[in-house]
Amino acid sequence: MSMKRFVIIGNGPAANHAAKALRENSSESRITIFSKDPFRSYRAHLLPDFIAGLIKEEDLYNSSYAHYNEMDINLRLGQRVVSVDFSKRNVILDHKEVVPFDGLIVATGGKPRLPEQFQLFQDIMLTLKTPLDARMWVEKLSNVDSVLIIGGDLTSLSLTKALLKLHKRVKFILNDDAFWPVPLNEEIYRAVTGRLEQRGVEIVHCRRIRRITQLEENLLEVETDREILETGVLGAFFGLVPDVGFLARTGLDIDRGILVDEFLKTRFANVYAAGDCAQVYHPALRDYWVSIGHENATALGRIAALNLAGSHFEVQVKPESILEVGGVKINTSWWTEF
């Protein structure tokens, strides 16, 4: 039998743990990782520290290129998968390359969510997902001293810590549908605003944002239903949504994320999904849940790989640790102390 070709889409924690487990369980196979990002796998939770100048960019990355060579994994960075042909079992890349696979793990993670009302302002609102985004923040922050954050999610809370360290004036418009992935109930709202204010963050109360005007390169005017605010930079933090749009027309079952069973299998043979992009079936709940967080991602990545390599592991999540936010069931391993 010829060598098996395994393809992993994604280079986050889910993908890398999957690759490692695949290699351990299938020494002969050919393993390829694709990432649309042109940089190595990084520790997302350190991005705020990098912005705060506490660590160097190099410290964000957690594995060397040599590591992939040693593991005989073909790491292909900066190469975006644009589609998958499940009948021919090919992955299709942005640059028109066709890569056949015997087994596939989709681990494309999430991407910053932007509610529809803000989509028009996409290019003036900063988000934070990758080191590139972080570099943008660093660059911007060197020219401005005030930041307005709209939304408010776990990422924004870590970022705020960094901003305060840099002595920036921070204002927050807390948006109640935004506190992804944790439901923003009264209790949390009060706790969070209290903590924020205590640290010198100004909480802006409003029902809606009317207008955003760019006055100068580093000066924006934001008009709410109550007041007019000026800020140097605007951040949008509405949580992460599974980054699976490119698979929409491939025949995969997709709801918010890619629907997989408790073994992380999709409806196609030898095709799995893991990490932030997956929506996993829970036999007890008889419903799907979205995974969020680093620990989850590594665990799911590993299970997907083992099952692809022939095992039969079930994802074990206690029903009570699955929350519901805005009609979506979520399990998160990510809790930030703020």
Binding site: T32, P38, Y65, Y68, N69, N74, L75, R76, L77, G78, Q79, I92, L93, H95, K96, E97, V98, V99, P100
Partner: peptide, 19 residues
């Protein structure tokens, strides 16, 4: 035209290559 992986340049680049 579409290029099969076995003929593609990107499939044989070292991991650190910047494409």
């Amino acid at each position: 035209a579409y290029v099969p992986e076995d003929n593609s340049l990107l499939s044989v680049l070292p991991p650190g290559a910047q494409v």
